[in-house]
Design a protein around this nucleic acid. Structure first.
Ligand SMILES: [Zn+2]
Ligand SMILES: [Zn+2]
Ligand SMILES: [Zn+2]
Ligand SMILES: [Zn+2]
Lengths: 172, 172
DNA sequence: CGTCTGAAGGTTATATTATAACATTACAAT
DNA sequence: ATTGTAATGTTATAATATAACCTTCAGACG
């Protein structure tokens, strides 16, 4: 309970209304795709909802299994194609160190994805800290490297999971 | 060590003596394992040499195939076990965004692996910039996140590959 | 309306990456 | 030699991802 108040800004509180997260993500996606002329089909919308099922990144095959449970059977290519579309639209990010996908809370503006990922509760928080970006640009600039894409994934324990002996991952 | 424009210091020159890279990596590994009482067996040494085959990260199955070509047939678990040992000793790093492994040029001292990875030539350069580390610690500290492990992989083009038409491989 | 077209999705098979489980061998210490 | 343990071998399979080809569907247009 001795968490910092800032912490809640990036990691959702344990008791937050997650249905609201899902709904607003879907609404944002609808609007954004409409403005861009991109087709957010029922299939893609379902996959996006399942990625947002939790703040913990979801694997493609977990999404696949949930689709089956929900009465929408699909094969791997279907899921991967939907994920590719969502990635292209910036609606989700891929977490390389987990081979999994997580919803983007700010899909309207382009940004590198910088993540804090808790090994206790599994949640991934997108931070996109200006200072990290600046340090990276400076470091790459020093050696003449031109950055096209960033993978920044910091693993550890979120404030809630520290001191609770919560090292191993759990469900979702 | 505190450098500004040691531009070519991180990416090896195109014409450098790579056999020297391999030899000194193997020598360093021998000494380090001896001091630690860790057993750098022939198998592990062979795998380490193959990881160092290039400054481009090598996949486990590429290593496996090369072992076969070299007359040292092996099954996947053999290679993965050797890689696990080398990772545990800090002799190599895993590149998450490539599912591949690259030799560590400074295995003596513990450090997070921060990489610049060229999409032109495939080379990965380990930078471990103190400013990036500091920015990350500050950013995580702000929200009370405890970092246990970092994945920092910056993809783009190295100085040599810029302007040489060497964008991500296309063929024609 | 009917037809055309291209994107989306379906289907099957397979590629790629990684690990589980158990048997055998090598090796150092007693 | 005996024994305990680390390393390796062996077989099978899990988990992640894509290739290739076919069908369906929504919208454009005459
Ligand atoms: Zn984002
Ligand atoms: Zn947590
Ligand atoms: Zn290193
Ligand atoms: Zn290059």
């Amino acid at each position: 309970m001795a968490g910092k108040s800032n912490a809640r800004a990036v990691f959702a509180a344990a008791d937050h209304d997650h249905d609201h997260c899902i709904d607003s993500a879907l609404d944002a996606a609808s609007g954004l795709c409409a403005r861009r002329g991109a087709r957010l089909t029922a299939q893609r919308r379902r996959v996006l909802a399942l990625v947002w099922r939790s703040h913990a990144p979801q694997g493609a095959y977990a999404i696949l299994a949930t689709l089956h449970r929900d009465g929408h059977p699909a094969a791997p290519p279907t899921v991967y194609r939907a994920l590719d579309f969502l990635l292209a639209q910036g609606l989700i990010h891929r977490i390389e160190s987990l081979n999994a996908f997580v919803g983007c809370p700010t899909p309207d503006t382009p940004h590198p994805g910088h993540f804090l990922i808790c090994d206790g509760c599994g949640a991934a928080a997108e931070v996109n800290d200006r200072r990290i970006g600046a340090a990276i640009r400076r470091s790459a600039g020093d050696v003449g490297f031109r950055i096209e894409r960033q993978t920044i994934e910091l693993r550890g324990l979120c404030p809630e999971c520290q001191g609770t002996g919560q090292e191993p991952a759990h469900g979702d």
